[in-house]
Amino acid sequence: MPIVPSNYNPPFLFKNGHFSTIYAGILRKIDGFKQKRERIDLPDGDFLDLDWSFSHQKTTKLTILLHGLEGNAQRPYITGSAKQLNTHNIDACAVNFRGCSGEVNRLYSSYHSGATEDLAAVIEHILSLKKYEEIYLKGFSLGGNLILKYLGEDRSISPNIKMAVTVSVPCNLYNSLKALLTPKNKLYSNRFKKHLIAKLKLKQNVFPDLLSDSDLKKIITLKDFDDIYTSRAHGFVDALDYYAKCSCLQFLPNIQIPTLIINAKNDSFLGPECYPYAAAEQNPNLYLEVPKYGGHVGFYGKNNVTYSERRAVAFFSHDKS
Rank of each mutant, 00 (worst) to 15 (best):
T182Q: 14
P183A: 03
K186L: 08
K186C: 08
L187I: 07
L187G: 02
S189M: 01
N190H: 14
R191C: 03
F192A: 11
H195V: 14
H195M: 14
L196P: 03
I197N: 03
A198D: 13
K201W: 01
L202N: 00
L202Q: 09
K203F: 03
K203E: 01
Q204A: 11
V206G: 07
F207R: 08
P208H: 06
D209I: 04
D209V: 02
D209Q: 11
L210Q: 11
L210Y: 09
S212A: 10
S212R: 15
S212W: 13
S214V: 15
D215C: 03
D215R: 05
L216Q: 08
K218N: 12
K218C: 10
I219A: 08
I219W: 08
T221W: 09
L222F: 02
L222M: 09
D224R: 06
D224W: 01
D224V: 06
D224S: 07
F225D: 07
D226E: 11
T230F: 07
R232F: 01
R232H: 09
R232Q: 13
A233T: 13
H234V: 14
F236V: 13
V237P: 00
D238I: 04
D238M: 02
D238K: 00
D238P: 03
Y242C: 05
Y243L: 03
Y243C: 04
Y243S: 01
A244F: 00
K245W: 02
K245P: 05
C246F: 00
C248M: 04
L249D: 00
Q250Y: 05
L252I: 00
L252P: 00
P253I: 05
N254Q: 12
I255G: 05
Q256F: 00
L260D: 02
I261G: 04
I262V: 15
N263T: 09
D267T: 04
S268W: 12
F269C: 13
F269Q: 08
L270G: 11
G271V: 07
P272N: 14
P272A: 08
P272E: 15
E273L: 09
C274N: 10
P276V: 09
P276K: 10
A279C: 08
A279S: 13
A280F: 05
A280N: 06
E281R: 15
N285R: 01
L288S: 04
E289F: 03
V290P: 00
V290Q: 03
V290Y: 02
K292S: 15
K292V: 15
K292E: 15
K292M: 11
Y293M: 14
Y293S: 09
G294S: 14
G295T: 10
G295S: 12
V297N: 12
G298F: 12
Y300I: 06
K302G: 10
N304Q: 12
N304R: 14
Y307S: 02
Y307F: 15
Y307V: 03
